[in-house]
């Protein structure tokens, strides 16, 4: 499964693809929701690592509109709950992630993205 926490950290790693290679764009995805235990400290600690716009865009594309466009300065319980849901409870099961730069297609099947590169794509 590709959760948005992982999607938010993932850039294209094909040969020569070093700029404009993040975030990978979801295409034709289906998702599953699965409960995860909320740990507020983990979520708070993870905040600085998040590329906010990429996360909000991905969440909205998958149908979740609970996150504000700008990362709020005050972190309250409601926000943490919503962020937890977006980061850890939405699982992309099928579809693809496409590099905005080189258009490499990383297919997702049965929850597992295929990150394998062809010989000529290896850096």
């Amino acid at each position: 499964m590709v959760r948005l926490i992982t999607h938010n950290l993932l850039a294209c790693h094909a040969k020569g693809c070093t700029t404009n290679n993040f975030p990978l764009q979801f295409k034709d995805v289906s998702i599953e929701l699965r409960e995860a235990e909320l740990n507020p400290d983990f979520i708070k600690g993870f905040l600085p690592r998040i590329e906010w716009k990429a996360l909000v865009d991905a969440a909205r594309q998958l149908g979740d509109t609970t996150l504000p466009s700008e990362m709020p300065e005050m972190v309250d319980d409601e926000f943490l709950k919503n962020l937890h849901h977006v980061l850890l409870e939405m699982h992309v099961e099928e579809g693809a992630m496409i590099c905005p730069n080189c258009s490499h297609v990383y297919a997702i099947s049965n929850g597992i993205p295929n990150m394998l590169l062809a010989e000529h794509e290896i850096a």
Binding site: M1, T6, P113, M115, L116, L117, A123
Partner: peptide, 10 residues
């Protein structure tokens, strides 16, 4: 999250 990946490709 599980990824199909060859670590030798980076």
């Amino acid at each position: 999250d599980l990824f199909l990946q060859d670590i030798g490709q980076g």
